[in-house]
Design a protein around this nucleic acid. Structure first.
Length: 478
RNA sequence: GGUGCUGUAGACAAAUUGGUAAAGUCACAGGGCUUUCAAUCCUGGGUUUGCGGGUUCGAUCCCCGUCAGCACUGCCA
């Protein structure tokens, strides 16, 4: 049977890193197996689901290059199917209406806690008499629908990542709610654990690959597969992505959406690459820098780790740098322009294009994040610079003014080239009998306002094209 | 409280019918290059495999116990 896997995000927030990584593993597995990768939007939580989140999720997946073969399928458009399946369980006597009020349930759990027991539904409405039901309905109570869970059952599955996993029915918290409260004659909105199963059956999902946080849902869902008379798919629970403290990576760690990474200056390829490395290890001899296609060729759950993976910004930065370093100047320039514009730098993306690409070629090989380009190149975009204290101190040293004056006097009217710039430096060195180091350092201080930065000669040529080398040297001397 | 999962250098990890533990990558340190910084290249340090028992000729691996972390424990997904 052909492999069919899915990513099923809930549009109650932006595309989160954890969801994205689950999507990556599903995508890799589907591609490796020559199967289908399907997108389903789990929007059964009407109160929290928002269209803009769906939009963010779709765009995020596309940005990462995780294209889906089918979907998106929206659960809210399939309500009749769920109602039909719930009715089926009701008819078979595998589910029933429970009339407990939220207050009653709270009280029950409180009491259990007080007795130091695990909170669970005690199945008190499982076998209500017709008289009791009539009484509750006369009272005007609504009912949820609960699915019966046998305490004595033992549920075992062979997890793709963890091997054999076993749960006892009694640890599942009692009969589970599968539909929200509604009047006695109707069926309320179905709940996650139920719709997931109905949809996965209906969509012919063969492997359910999801985060480890779902592991406790799996036994309940297996019971539902059985109740619905369906084949149970394989399950694979991938390790969680942890923050530095070892807790599940969350909003508080500075990233709510995958696009936050984009804003910070990471490329989609680097993010996808790093997420793959979070839990999966490349085969022997394989480089750690790879495309999703390359990873798909080698991907298997044999090499998926069980332990949670701590998110390491240093490593991500390094990976991102690897992509940036080998990116062609034209492409890198396209990515950098928005950052320069955002920073308020004045330039014409069309007319200044050659100058920009020349600049990109200079800084590209030392970038690890796109956003770093802003501070790195500020002195090339702003006419006025504020020299650092070190630079000011250097400019006060003996011989510096004379050296810079010499450069200024010798500056040709035509555009400077690497050769003519070198010749000019050489003539000053010889004419004034000073060390080349002094001239170079003075030039750097005068031209860039700093004692460190990108390649000096290249910076000078870039500045010269704008005529700013003359103004800055003049200012430095004055 | 209960259940489950996990535990190999600072981080990601390899070691898969039990057979010399830490390959590889990041980070870190030193050096080269660049008369700067970054990048890059070279070199280097780092292990009672959470801890304690057991089985075995031999245990990161299997068993028992223990500790820790995390997840789940909803009329959220």
């Amino acid at each position: 049977m052909s492999v069919r896997v899915r990513i099923a995000p809930s549009p109650t927030g932006n595309l989160h890193i954890g969801t994205a990584r689950t999507a990556v593993f599903n995508w890799l597995y589907a591609r490796h197996q020559g199967g289908q990768f399907i997108l389903r939007i789990e929007d059964t939580d009407l109160e929290r689901s928002k269209p803009e989140y769906t939009q963010n999720i779709l765009e995020g997946l596309q940005w990462l290059g995780l294209n889906w073969d089918e979907g998106p399928v929206y659960q809210t458009q399939r309500t009749e199917l769920y109602a039909q399946k719930i009715q089926e369980l009701l008819d078979k006597g595998l589910a029933y209406r429970a009339y407990d009020t939220p207050e009653e349930l709270d009280a029950m759990r409180e009491a259990q806690k007080a007795r130091n027991e695990a909170p669970r539904y005690d199945n008190r409405h499982r076998n209500l008499t017709p008289e009791q039901i009539a009484a509750y309905e006369a009272e005007g109570r609504t009912a949820v629908i609960r699915f019966k869970i046998d305490d004595d059952r033992e549920i075992t599955w062979n997890d793709l990542v963890r091997g054999q996993v076993t749960w006892k029915g009694r640890d599942l918290g009692g009969d589970m709610v599968i539909a929200r409260a509604a009047s006695a004659s109707t069926i309320g909105a179905p709940l996650y654990n139920f719709v997931v199963v109905v949809d996965d059956i209906d969509m012919g999902i063969t492997q359910v690959i999801r985060g480890e946080d779902h592991i406790g849902n799996t036994p309940k869902q297996i019971l539902l597969y059985e109740a619905l008379g369906a084949t149970v798919p394989e399950f694979g629970h991938t390790p969680l992505i942890l923050n530095q403290q070892g807790a599940k990576l969350s909003k508080r760690d500075g990233v709510t959406s995958i696009f936050d990474f984009k804003k910070m200056g990471y490329t989609a390829e680097a993010i996808a690459n790093y997420m793959t490395l979070l839990g999966w290890s490349p085969v022997e001899g394989m480089d750690e820098i790879f495309t999703l296609e390359q990873a798909a060729k080698e991907f298997s759950f044999d090499r998926v780790n069980k332990a949670g993976a701590k998110f390491d910004w240093d490593k991500l930065n390094w990976i991102n740098g690897q992509y940036l370093h080998k990116m062609p100047a034209a492409e890198l320039t396209d990515l950098l322009i928005p950052y320069w514009q955002e920073a308020g730098f004045a330039f014409d993306p069309i007319a200044d294009r050659p100058w920009l690409e020349q600049l990109t070629a200079v800084i590209g090989p030392s970038l690890s994040k796109l956003s770093e380009a802003v501070d790195m190149t500020r002195y090339l975009f702003m006419e006025a610079i504020e020299p650092t204290e070190d630079a000011i101190a250097h400019l006060k040293q003996d011989g510096v003014t004379a050296a810079l004056q010499g450069i200024l006097d010798g500056l040709p009217a035509e555009t400077l080239t690497q050769d003519s710039a070198n010749a000019l430096i050489q003539s000053v060195v010889k004419g004034q009998g000073v060390k080349k180091g002094l001239v170079m350092k003075s030039l750097r201080a005068g031209l860039t306002g700093s004692l460190q930065g990108p390649d000096l000669m290249q910076s000078w040529l870039l500045l010269n094209q704008k005529g700013w080398d003359r103004t800055r040297l003049t200012a430095a001397i004055g």
